[in-house]
């Protein structure tokens, strides 16, 4: 009854129960702390250049290069159960075959509340390619800034896990047409200038 073994057993059981309750309470509390942060994204330029595909040296593929600026205040997303924010810019478009594409072109991990007020001018971090290997006849893409909250403990509820589109539709979602002809013209111009 009062052996060391039973004392250790009781103490550790109590401690782990308390810890579990605390973790559960934190997880549940973060479910109620919902905020609606604001942000905008503006696309400065889009250019498409042909290049070699990554795996097949002889295969040509189009790569899109994007310059954009992002400003967002994500401080309200930081509460006691926020470990980090995953902020990303994605391009969404449907190609003529009806395939719906969603491509992340840039991301950033925010770990502190002090760094959560974001103003960034950048270009795409990841290659932006089309499945059919060319951006010819591709309708305009939809660029949006999204976030993903990573909590410290236990539950990552869906609403918490996946953030929505930041900003109002007029300012946050910008649509640009990727003009293949313009780019070809631009390349041609460069070529002539070189000659």
């Amino acid at each position: 009854m009062h052996t060391i073994y039973s004392r250790i057993n009781n103490t550790s059981a109590l401690l782990s129960t308390c810890l579990m309750c605390l973790v559960g309470a934190i997880a549940v509390s973060s479910y109620f702390m919902t905020t609606d942060p604001r942000g905008t994204i503006g696309v400065a330029s889009i250019q498409v250049f042909p290049g070699n595909a990554r795996r097949y040296v002889n295969k040509q593929q189009d790569f899109a290069f994007l310059h954009f600026n992002v400003s967002a205040d994500l401080t309200p997303l930081f509460n006691w159960n926020t470990k980090q924010l995953f902020l990303y810019v994605s391009a969404e478009y449907t190609n003529p075959q009806g395939i719906r594409n969603d491509v992340v072109i840039w991301d950033k991990i925010v770990r502190r509340k002090e760094d959560a007020n974001i103003t960034i001018t950048s270009r795409n971090k990841y290659t932006f390619r089309e499945l059919s290997s060319t951006f010819r006849n591709i309708p305009p893409a939809h660029y949006s800034l999204k976030y993903n909250v990573m909590p410290y403990s236990l539950a990552t509820f869906h609403s918490n896990m996946k953030g929505g589109v930041l900003g109002s539709p007029s300012s946050g979602r910008m649509t640009y047409r990727m003009s293949y002809k313009v780019v070809i013209g631009f390349l041609g111009g460069l070529l002539f200038a070189g000659l």
Partner: peptide
């Protein structure tokens, strides 16, 4: 995109936990 998935491709012996970068529906 942004979801963290666990996947296992044929030939690999352990599953990998990584984030989705591109989706092409349909």
């Amino acid at each position: 995109t942004g979801d963290i998935t666990v996947y296992k491709v044929p030939g690999a012996d352990i599953p990998i936990v990584h984030r989705v970068l591109e989706t092409h529906d349909g």
